[in-house]
Design a protein around this nucleic acid. Sequence first.
DNA 1: CGGGTTGTTGACGAATTTCAATCCGGGTGG
DNA 2: CCACCCGGATTGAAATTCGTCAACAACCCG
Lengths: 249, 249
Amino acid sequence: MKTTAAARQFPCEKCPLQDFSHFQRHEKDEVSFLSSFKMGELVADTGTTVLVEGANSAHLFTVLSGWGFRYKTLDDGRRQILNYVLPGDLIGLQGSVMKKMQHSIEALSPMILCMFQRDNLANLFRNFPALGYDITWLASREEQMLDEILLSVGRRTALERAAYLFAFIFQRAQSVGMVKSGKLTVPVTQQHVADTLGLSIVHTNKTLKKLASRGALRWLDRGCEVLDEQILMDISGWQGLPATPRPYI
Amino acid sequence: MKTTAAARQFPCEKCPLQDFSHFQRHEKDEVSFLSSFKMGELVADTGTTVLVEGANSAHLFTVLSGWGFRYKTLDDGRRQILNYVLPGDLIGLQGSVMKKMQHSIEALSPMILCMFQRDNLANLFRNFPALGYDITWLASREEQMLDEILLSVGRRTALERAAYLFAFIFQRAQSVGMVKSGKLTVPVTQQHVADTLGLSIVHTNKTLKKLASRGALRWLDRGCEVLDEQILMDISGWQGLPATPRPYI
DNA sequence: CGGGTTGTTGACGAATTTCAATCCGGGTGG
DNA sequence: CCACCCGGATTGAAATTCGTCAACAACCCG
């Protein structure tokens, strides 16, 4: 349960994200600006709360590696997972733009985050409008993902919902090279899945069992192995993510 | 079911939105830029689809007056209303930033929209970074609203959910001067409410009846009259919206 | 060897959907 | 003016989904 600010292991010039064709390239001068915008790196262990709802000290982060999730809770403890966080995702923008964070983020695996000083955000918009546009792009993409998730939670059946969730995660993970030989292990518990789908843990267990019996996935010690994306897409009726390259900061 | 592009009735210098203290002021040069960015006004009747999922011709709009809603549907027709659209809201950003619109928007009342040319968006970011930042702010605010709605649909009971919905709409409407003498009429059918809450129409009817019996609201011919915001907040356990002024374009 | 976390299962009851009628007001054609 | 139609609101009853409770198994960790 510790987070540590480490020395800079990944200079922007060698940002590990640039290895994926999924991401758009930066111009030379953008890279050098980002390098100065970057304060350092944050290494977070599994279970660490990277950003807390209500805090206003938040920085801005880009995920370099690892899994996390974004969530909100009600006063009596009921929790809703809003979305998952994967490499390339920008987090903490709400804290930079509003006064306080309105949600929390927790690590599902060891994570490495690139940390930015939010004070300099206005600076970024002033001197690198294309990067400002990229941030808007990313915010818009997050909104689009939320739209789909809300559609799913509001209108799909439990089985469709679960199938959609793993198909969605699979595609996102695939685009950042986390899928090896057609398979992917998602480091979540069934409680996480339940809190994502808006279901109880018991019902989630029974629903996952159905997906497993159809060969779509397999439950492991610690996490879920996605075996057959196509079955998941068939069950959920989901069309899949557009394949356009996307920016990152 | 018609939309018409009318002559310019509201020059930016006299934008009706600036009458509300809820909105941040623009600088002089920003106003004149926005005036050139603006293409015209769109008047949409009740029931008109202002933006359609899948279309890529979308412009960017700011709502000047009226009510609308944003929604997505599944192939078999199940519909989820994602959020409501009120004066000051920016819509169509996804269409500008991604290739295609991923959701539709329909008018719940006659609407007047301020229409922008999306080609010029890069221009805006280049020449008026503060406005670019404002757009990011608005995108972030939309995300924040979606987070709360998703929390509600995923984790609140039917009664809490309905109470939250109307408390939320009430506060948003209040900040743009739509609440007269403590009361507000929301121009929706129970089908709209059902599609917002992720419930069937029958159950929605029974849930609304409960709220009505507690004096929180009253159902009219064509819409819902919110009578007591406090009861709604008590039932839902919702804390309310932060009161910070916000930008608009 | 406990103790804690996570996954599994069956039984029961509560929440919610579906089906099927009915009602009501407004608009339309005769 | 009246019969009819239509969208929206209501209601009761049966069927399904889903949540809660409770118990237990498997596993990891100190």
